[in-house]
Amino acid sequence: MVVVIGADVHKATHTLVAVDEVGKVLGQGVFQARREGHLKALGWARRSFKDAELVWAIEDCRHLTGLLERDLLGAGQTVVRVSPKLMGATRRAGRERGKSDPIDATAVARAAQAHPDLPVARHDEASRELKLLVDRREDLVAERTRMMNRLRWHLHEIDPDLAPPARSLDRTVVVVTLRAQLVELESLVAQIAVEVLDDIAVRNAQIRSLERRITAAVELAAPVLLELPGCGPLTAAKIVGETAGIDCFTSEAAYAMFTGTAPIPVWSGQTAGKVRLNRAGNRQLNAALHRIAITQVRLGGPGRDYYDKKRAVGKTSTETYRCLRRQLARTVYNTLNHGMAAAPDAAMPAAA
């Protein structure tokens, strides 16, 4: 007997609901979102279902579930990750009305039963470290962007001619030159602008330092991914960090579904053979694959040849990029799963 335990996670507590092989609720409990609470939850599950094989289904919110996953995996348990959108669809299809933590946990468990090819969580320190570094860099970039926008408003108030060229405030020479111009002014706006500019300079240094760390880490974790045309260190780090272990996927089709690149058929009556955008899956991975696709089309090579071939048969640019992302998902899966170097000629598999 297999018992699936669905978890609805929050900062303070985790609500667990156990279901049997046909989705019938067998029990539920609420436990503290601490290591002590996780151990109590594990003890509850083992006592309640002694002769059953336990599978823990956890909603894929790794900023909330990271500690729970590590504690369960450390205890030798099987943990699968359920997409929030997948859980939401299962909840809406259920017979229970309303929304509560037990209803959500039940939906997570039943979604895991209905989709046996979900990614299985495992310890992967390399991908976790890359995700932390990439997330930190993105936070700093977002902060720097807000500072740059504020600085440009101050410069417009002082003198519009002081505004530097677009996308140039990450360059040290531009920051130093602009600061020298601002310190000669005596207005309060200029003083504030100098302070904001100094903050931007600090963020620039932090971002460059993180980029060097990310590049060094991804060269150790996935050097073959860097050989894929159009895939730079930051994009490769994003892919490795969000994938969190390629061997937790049962097939390249499962990985394509996880990345949101698997096409969704539009078939009704005489309308057949069309597909539409898949809005599910990990959007961060989807965006990373799109960046690779854009770069390959711009630089030429197999990616550009594939793009031209699809355009020649009547597909729009949007449809062609959608197909290209699906091909890239297959390439990334094979590259990471088998560790093979992606030579330029093998960067883009032929379309089926």
Rank of each mutant, 00 (worst) to 15 (best):
M1P: 11
M1L: 07
V4N: 07
A7S: 07
V9N: 01
K11Y: 03
A12F: 08
T13A: 07
H14E: 12
T15H: 14
V17D: 08
V17F: 06
V17C: 12
F31S: 05
A33Q: 05
R34E: 04
G37E: 07
A41E: 08
L42V: 04
R46C: 01
F49T: 08
F49N: 08
D51Q: 13
E53D: 13
A57D: 04
D60S: 14
L64I: 11
T65L: 02
L67C: 08
L68Y: 02
E69V: 02
E69C: 06
G74T: 14
G76F: 12
T78L: 00
V80K: 04
R81L: 15
G88V: 05
G98H: 12
S100T: 15
I103V: 09
A107D: 09
A107Q: 10
Q113R: 10
V120Q: 11
H123L: 15
A126V: 11
L133H: 08
V134Y: 00
V141F: 08
A142D: 15
M147L: 12
N149H: 13
R152Y: 03
W153T: 05
H156Q: 10
S168Q: 00
L169F: 03
R171K: 13
T172V: 10
T172R: 10
V175H: 08
E184M: 09
L188I: 08
L188G: 07
A190H: 13
E195G: 07
D198T: 03
I200Q: 15
A201H: 01
A201R: 14
R203I: 05
R208A: 14
S209A: 15
S209T: 12
E211G: 14
A221P: 03
P223C: 04
E227W: 00
P233W: 15
A237C: 11
V240G: 09
G241R: 07
E242K: 00
I246M: 11
T250H: 15
A254R: 06
M257F: 01
M257K: 07
S268P: 03
T271D: 00
A272G: 08
N278C: 10
R279V: 07
A280D: 06
A287C: 07
R291M: 12
R291P: 05
I292R: 13
A293P: 09
Q296I: 13
V313A: 10
K315D: 02
K315F: 14
Q327P: 09
L328W: 01
A329H: 10
V332P: 04
N334H: 05
G339N: 10
A341D: 07
A342P: 06
A346N: 15
A347Q: 11
A351R: 00
A352S: 07
